[in-house]
């Protein structure tokens, strides 16, 4: 799918106009995306060293386990993370970065 310069310009003009109609929600969503991206970067960095459980990731990143679980589930759903096994006590699953995922 390639897009011409004109088309790209039209899209961005439309988006600017639409953002003006939804200032508050767009701002909040933008903030959310920013936060999510920061968290994802942290999690990906931690996962680079090998498979982790949710509590291990929480400890390394200083996040709450409940938040880690949500992000890992989301990353798994959209293909950035895969489940690879279990920890020794067979209490927690371990997760790795999926092949071809950046950072």
């Amino acid at each position: 799918m390639t897009i011409s310069k004109e088309e790209a310009k039209a899209i961005s003009e439309l988006m600017i106009a639409k953002r003006k109609e939804h200032v508050e929600t767009a701002k909040a969503a933008q903030q959310l995306v920013k936060e999510n991206n920061a968290i994802r970067r942290k999690l990906k960095k931690a996962l680079k060293s090998g498979p982790h459980t949710i509590p291990q990731l929480a400890e390394e990143t200083g996040m709450e386990t409940v938040d880690v679980l949500w992000h890992i589930a989301a990353m798994e759903k959209y293909g950035a993370v895969i489940e690879v096994g279990m920890d020794e006590d067979e209490e927690y699953y371990t997760y790795s970065l999926a092949k071809g995922v950046k950072k």
């Binding site: 899209i11 988006m15 939804h22 929600t25 767009a26 969503a29």
Partner: peptide, 23 residues
């Protein structure tokens, strides 16, 4: 719409002309 950041990525990715219509 309530969670859209209006980045336009969806429109660019959509293979069907005029399928996504913000208007």
């Amino acid at each position: 719409m309530d969670h859209c950041i209006f980045c336009g990525q969806c429109i660019k990715a959509c293979p069907v002309p005029d399928c996504i219509d913000f208007n």
